[in-house]
């Protein structure tokens, strides 16, 4: 049972990591909470479903297309809603409230267009999992684990070595100073939404394959993705992935003792505890002054 719980925790953590990492990229660069990030995954999942049900396009086209649509979605949300608000010097709290409104808008739009029932995506054959050390794991779950692992190293390398990655870190640390060195902050912010939302698109695809599709899927995971980012440290992109695994494992080992219904309660309580006691998370830098933005 231990190994099964471990695998369950790793799978759950991986799914949270898919959401948390994209969210973290957007947060570190823009310094506000983009709650509607979960909706990006939802929209991507429904897009995938729609394309798959109506057009006989091959998978190697459909998947990248979905990711592109997700990236475009995030980009447009930033361009049309957040940017105008930022231009008005809206505080990060206003942007947060706007993101909650966007989340409600898109989740309900999906429900309106597709209905409230669960849509099953039968792309790959399902079946009994593969047995490893007495625990079972399915091929899709293995794919999710590998993808997140690659994502982890990819993002780490990206922020440390790539030009854009380094620029994003600079903008994140000190937007004004970055501007004086000729960095176009707005362009960088655009890129953060594109990349973050693309990852959300990937998340949408994998979650759709693993858990099927319904209107609230993204938002529900967003709460846990956000918690994961807080635990790992919202200012640290790889940290958010670590936080995701901490959350996934805590939840799944936690319900060994508790009734399984308490799983979501664990996330909420962890979130509150971290926000109060260690808001910078495990890896975040304590910027010292809590009166400032995170």
């Amino acid at each position: 049972m231990f190994f099964q719980l471990l695998i369950n925790g790793l799978i759950a953590g991986s799914i949270y990591a898919l959401i948390a990492s994209g969210f973290s990229i957007i947060y570190t660069t823009n310094k506000f909470v983009h709650f509607a990030h979960g909706s990006t995954a939802t929209v991507a999942a429904y897009f995938l479903y729609w394309i798959f049900s109506n057009f006989g396009l091959p998978l190697y086209l459909v998947f990248p297309l979905t990711i592109l649509i997700a990236a475009l979605f995030g980009f447009l949300v930033h361009l049309l809603i957040y940017l105008p608000l930022k231009k008005r010097k809206s505080s990060s709290v206003i942007l947060l409230i706007a993101s909650l409104a966007l989340m409600a808008f898109f989740d309900n739009l999906m429900q309106l267009l597709f209905g409230a029932d669960v849509k099953i995506l039968s792309i790959f054959p399902h079946g009994k999992g593969i047995e490893i050390l007495g625990a079972y794991i399915t091929p899709i779950q293995i794919v999710i684990l590998i993808v997140v692992l690659l994502l982890f190293f990819g993002l780490w390398a990206f922020s440390k070595y790539s030009k854009l990655g380094k620029i994003m870190r600079a903008v994140s640390d000190n937007p004004e100073l970055a501007k004086t060195t000729g960095i176009n902050s707005i362009r960088v912010q655009h890129w953060s939404f594109v990349i973050g939302s693309a990852i959300a698109g990937l998340a949408g695809i994998l979650i759709a394959l693993e858990h099927n599709i319904e209107p609230a899927m993204g938002t529900h995971l967003m709460i846990q993705g956000f918690t994961a980012a807080v635990i790992g440290g919202v200012t640290s992109i790889p940290g958010s992935i670590v936080g995701a695994y901490v959350l996934g494992l805590t939840e799944n080992f936690g319900i060994w003792f508790l009734p399984s219904g308490y799983k979501s309660a664990i996330a909420f309580v962890l979130l509150l505890i971290f926000l109060i006691i260690r808001p910078q998370g495990i890896f975040g830098i304590n910027q010292g002054n809590r009166d400032q933005k995170m």
Binding site: F32, V93, L96, V230, A265, F268, L271, L275, R290, D291
Partner: peptide, 24 residues
């Protein structure tokens, strides 16, 4: 001891925890 973003997010977390208690 919290202000700004931290404060609002902590209040949101509080709301979630109360919801979880009602549920469980």
């Amino acid at each position: 001891r919290l202000k700004g973003d931290y404060l609002s997010l902590a209040t949101l977390g509080f709301g979630f925890v109360v919801y979880a208690v009602m549920l469980n």
